[in-house]
C-alpha cells in the first residue's frame, strides 16, 4: 500500500528536512520511500513543499497524487494545497485560519507554538511536525523515528530534537483520542 505525505509551508521552516527524516525512517523500517520537493528561487520565505511516498512495494511515480496526509504550517500553503486535498487528512498549525470551502477532514494542532513555547526553540517546529505526522499516520514506529532523527540532526542538538519529536508524538496522540 502506498502512503503519501505532502508537507507544505514557508521556506526556512525545515519541512524538507522533516520529509527527508520521514523517508529515512521508512527505509530503516525496511520499506521503500521517495522524497521530492518543490520550492521557489528564494532561500527563505517563499513557498516550500516536500512530498514523501512510502510503500512496501516498488514506487514508480515519485510524487504524491492524492495525499493521505497534508501538513500545512501557513495560511498560504493551507489555501493552496487544502483545496486539492481529496480523501486524506489535513493537519494545520493552529495559527492557520480554517476555510469552510475546504472540505477535507482537518485537525488543527499547535505545532509552531509547541516548538516556540514548550520546547523553547522555534527552529524545531519541523521536528515537532515530524512527530505529529509519524504519530497520526503510524507509518513508522516512534522508536524508528527517534533513530532517524538522531541520524540526521547536528551533534549537540540530539536532546533538543528528541524532545521536539516526542512533543509532536504527544500532540498526535491527543488528536487521535479527541
Amino acid at each position: 500500500m502506498r502512503t503519501e505525505f505532502r508537507l507544505s509551508g514557508s521556506g526556512g521552516q525545515g519541512l524538507l528536512l522533516a520529509g527527508i527524516v520521514l523517508a529515512e525512517a521508512a527505509i530503516l523500517d525496511g520499506k521503500n520511500a521517495v522524497q521530492t520537493q518543490s520550492y521557489g528561487p528564494e532561500a527563505r520565505g517563499g513557498s516550500s513543499k516536500a512530498e514523501v511516498v512510502v510503500s512496501a512495494e516498488d514506487i514508480d511515480y515519485p510524487k504524491a497524487t492524492d495525499p493521505d496526509f497534508l501538513l500545512a504550517l501557513t495560511n498560504d500553503s493551507y489555501k493552496t494545497y487544502g483545496k486539492l486535498q481529496g480523501k486524506g487528512l489535513i493537519i494545520v498549525d493552529s495559527s492557520v485560519c480554517l476555510d469552510p470551502d475546504i472540505k477535507a477532514r482537518t485537525v488543527s494542532l499547535p505545532i509552531l507554538d509547541t516548538a516556540a513555547n514548550v520546547i523553547g526553540k522555534k527552529v524545531v517546529a519541523n521536528i515537532v511536525a515530524l512527530g505529529v505526522l509519524g504519530g497520526i499516520s503510524g507509518v513508522v514506529s516512534p522508536e524508528i523515528l527517534e533513530k532517524a532523527v538522531l541520524n540526521r540532526v547536528p551533534k549537540g542538538t540530539e536532546e533538543l530534537n528528541i524532545k521536539a519529536l516526542r512533543a509532536g508524538l504527544e500532540l498526535a496522540a491527543k488528536a487521535k483520542n479527541a
Partner: peptide, 9 residues
Amino acid sequence: ETIGHMREK
C-alpha cells in the same frame, strides 16, 4: 530537476 533533486532508497 526532478531526477536530480529526488531522494530514493
